[in-house]
Amino acid sequence: MSVTKSLFTIGTAALASGLIMLSAAPAKAWEPSHPIEIIVPAGTGGGADQMARTMQGIITKHNLTKQPVVVVNKSGGAGGEGFLDVKNSKGNDHKLIITLSNLFTTPLATGIPFSWKDMTPVAMMALDEFILWVNADKPYKTTKDFVAAIKAAPDNTFKMGGTGSKQEDQIITVALQKATGKKMIYIPQSGGGAVAVQLVGGHVDSTVNNPIEAVAHWRAGKLRPLCVFDSKKLDYNEKIQGDLTWNSIPTCKSEGLDVEYLMLRGYFMPPGVSKEAVAYYVEMFKKVRETPEWKKLMSDGAFNTTFMVGDEYAKWVAENEKIHESLMKEAGFLASKSN
């Protein structure tokens, strides 16, 4: 019977601490009252997952919030599973989701019913760059060499590796096809790391990996960056390979390939959350941006560090949605109504 008794004691203690937690909720500013959940609508080890887990580490290490932060991967249906979960958690002040381009591409390509308008925008943390990479053993020293080689060969000679199907990498590939007038074979892989290794192994001819996915192979002299799909050069000047820096990579536009693409790394919350909670997380993210660990992640991955919140952020997202819609429509990636 003593077991039962001690269990009762535990029960009362839990009840009591619960009451304390309730009464301790301060009236002045909103504070999280239980663990904060960050949903990653992608698998473990990808760019979004790495960013979420790094932030989890930074927040814990610098004690930026009193409650623990939990990272949960919901990658099913090209991330649709994660977005649906957030869409259906109306008013949950303790749930955040980190997005990648599948915020736009998944509903368009699969017909899974969600949109950014079903969620509450919190903050844009950064924009991820895309770079055109080739194997360093190949003779293409510049974008012009590579484009000339593509143009000289028949359709479907050059293989492009990328992450997923009908997502950002394939959108860029379609844009490249338009610019060169030749078809490429697009081979989808499961993750950015695997894509880079396929290029190092010579199983594809080029990739459009994010900087962080391919930088290790560049430093080792296995890969060569040709150009960056942004309107301006990257603003990082540490030497990476020989005397080359991120800043030495020309923009694709200046090389005659008029293609630009940036990917959102930002946060959303479920619909109907309180303004105070959103403000709290914005403040927390601002503190994250000041830490040395975050700055290191940004320079390692050559991120574009644009930070946006509120209406400015919502406006950016709305514009990007339109851009994706027209890009995907043009490429024939929209879901047929049959499934």
Partner: peptide, 23 residues
């Protein structure tokens, strides 16, 4: 699960009442 490994499992009204639920 909830305290050591921070894995949230489904919770109901009882946990809400005790203030133990994430959501």
């Amino acid at each position: 699960f909830e305290r050591w490994f921070l894995v949230p499992l489904p919770k109901g009204p009882l946990e809400q009442m005790l203030g133990l639920a994430v959501g």
